[in-house]
């Protein structure tokens, strides 16, 4: 009995001790995707600047958004995708960046700067970019696939993996109709419905986290996946081929931004500048085969990395891609449409 009480009390003591850490002067609180910023990069930042970094992780933009808007924590750096940056700017939730503190911004290729979601890069800097494209297992599919229309054909029924992301899927359908991907009016959604009604029953697997698994296991033969997933597949086996959809596709830009509630803005800016340093950016590219927007860092990459078409599409291809704008309350409707067509 006494023993039990001691155990309980000591457990509670440990629990409580964890809550109240004294504030330090040199601190930075980062809220980022898990694994997206390699630990070695964070350790090096601490070593060079003496700033202690605490990291909190999430696995989707919306988890971050929900926690941030509920006032969940004091974050100095967040890592939103482009359309979330736009939404946060519109709601006046981001702190403007002092660009004089971030000279390394000049390393970024111009095609990733001053985009519609943050026209002056007042609030965000690009961290990593990427595309959505088609991966084909050439051992199983002999047809020439050029775009979405060739993927979603009856003969490919049960052989397709796509991202489990209603907004992405809807964007592809819009592209196949020649409509820009951000024009998600109710009228356009009506036009998209019949396309999706034809497409979705052909799909075998919906997976946003690791669509490569179904392709690697041979359960499906073709996939519409993130560029980084494609890059890993291309590395793993020459039978996989990467195609940028002829209809055009989505270019996503994961950014770094400072929330309005941040307490250590200067440290956050120092962190941004650090991330944009060529040698640091190269480390991130080594861990994540996405499209590195940092031209100075690209010079440090190996020939193999640069030749990977899924990581680095040509400038001509990128020019044809579109970024997501914030669509506000339409998201709920898109989810409903995709759910209803799945649940048949």
């Amino acid at each position: 009995m006494k023993k039990t009480i001691t155990v309980v009390l000591s457990a509670l003591a440990i629990v409580l001790a964890g809550c109240g850490k004294a504030p330090e002067a040199k601190k930075l609180s980062v809220f980022c995707w898990s694994e997206y910023i390699p630990q070695s990069v964070i350790d090096q930042f601490t070593k060079e600047t003496g700033i202690q970094v605490s990291v909190e992780n999430y696995a989707s933009n919306e988890e971050m958004l929900a926690k941030l808007t509920a006032g969940g924590g004091q974050y100095d750096i967040i890592q939103p995708s482009e359309y979330v940056v736009e939404a946060l700017i519109a709601q006046n939730l981001l702190h403007p960046i002092d660009k004089n503190k971030i000279p390394n911004l000049s390393n970024i290729a111009p095609q990733f700067l001053k985009l519609s979601f943050d026209p002056e890069n007042k609030f965000s800097v690009p961290f990593m970019a990427g595309t959505v494209g088609i991966v084909i297992n050439t051992e199983l599919i002999k047809d020439d696939i050029k775009g979405f229309a060739d993927v979603f054909k009856p003969q490919n029924q049960g052989k397709i993996v796509v991202l489990d992301d209603a907004r992405e899927i809807t964007a592809w359908a819009l592209l196949s109709l020649g409509i820009p991907i951000n024009e998600l009016s109710d009228a356009n959604l009506e036009k998209v419905k019949p396309v999706l009604a034809n497409w979705l029953p052909l799909v075998k697997v919906f997976d946003s986290d690791s669509p490569k698994t179904a392709l690697l296991n041979g359960d499906v033969a073709v996939g519409v996946v993130w560029g980084g997933e494609g890059a890993i597949l291309l590395q793993s086996n020459p039978k996989f081929r990467w195609v940028i959809p002829a209809e055009g596709t989505h270019l996503f830009i994961d950014s770094l931004a400072i929330p309005k509630t941040a307490k250590n803005v200067e440290n956050a800016e120092a962190f941004m500048n650090f991330i944009l340093r060529p040698d640091i950016s190269q480390k991130i590219s080594d861990a994540f085969p996405y499209t590195n927007p940092n031209l100075a860092a690209r010079k440090l990459l190996t020939e193999d990395q640069l030749q990977n078409k899924a990581s680095f599409p040509s400038d001509a291809d990128i020019a044809k891609m579109q970024t997501f704008r914030d669509i506000g309350t339409q998201g709920s409707k898109i989810d409903e449409i995709v759910t209803s067509l799945k649940a048949r």
């Binding site: 995707w33 898990s34 694994e35 992780n57 696995a59 690791s210 980084g228 994540f288």
Partner: peptide, 11 residues
């Protein structure tokens, strides 16, 4: 929390 985002690059 550390694991769930990992699937993106392979567990």
């Amino acid at each position: 929390l550390k694991v769930y985002g990992m699937a993106k690059v392979g567990l």
